[in-house]
């Protein structure tokens, strides 16, 4: 099954990090991504720019309304994702737990939509 691992953490901590701390985190992410690729479950992954770059778009009565900032102001922000293809939820959870940001932030595990899904 395909899952997206959505990474949420407090982006305000990044500017406060020392160069060493930042390098260490990037190193951890490098190791994790390498492991994912070697095990053959990795589909793709991206890190997002911080939420101050976000624009939220809504179309109401035919008008496009754009607002500054992310969809929701939260303590932890959506900062990136991994898309993986694994056997089941337990495997997805095991990978999610290895994401470096899972230690301070959180990772949401969501299956990718399939035609089996029932809408309601």
């Amino acid at each position: 099954m395909k899952y997206m691992l959505l990474i949420f953490d407090d982006e305000s901590m990044y500017p406060k990090m020392t160069a060493e701390e930042n390098a260490k985190l990037m190193e951890e992410y490098g190791v994790f991504t390498q492991e994912l690729m070697q095990s053959g479950v990795m589909m793709h992954a991206e890190r997002l720019a911080p939420t101050h770059t976000a624009t939220t778009v809504r179309v109401r009565a035919g008008d496009t309304i754009t607002t500054d900032g992310p969809f929701a102001e939260t303590k932890e922000q959506f900062g990136g994702y991994y898309m993986i293809d694994v056997k089941d939820l337990d495997e997805a959870i095991a990978w999610a737990a290895k994401i470096p940001s899972a230690k301070g932030g959180s990772v949401e595990v969501r299956p990718i939509w399939t035609d089996e899904q029932v809408c309601n």
Partner: peptide
């Protein structure tokens, strides 16, 4: 439904 759609495995962990 969650068992089915989220891929919760049917097994002894």
């Amino acid at each position: 439904r969650k068992i089915r759609e989220a891929g919760i495995p049917y097994r002894i962990p």
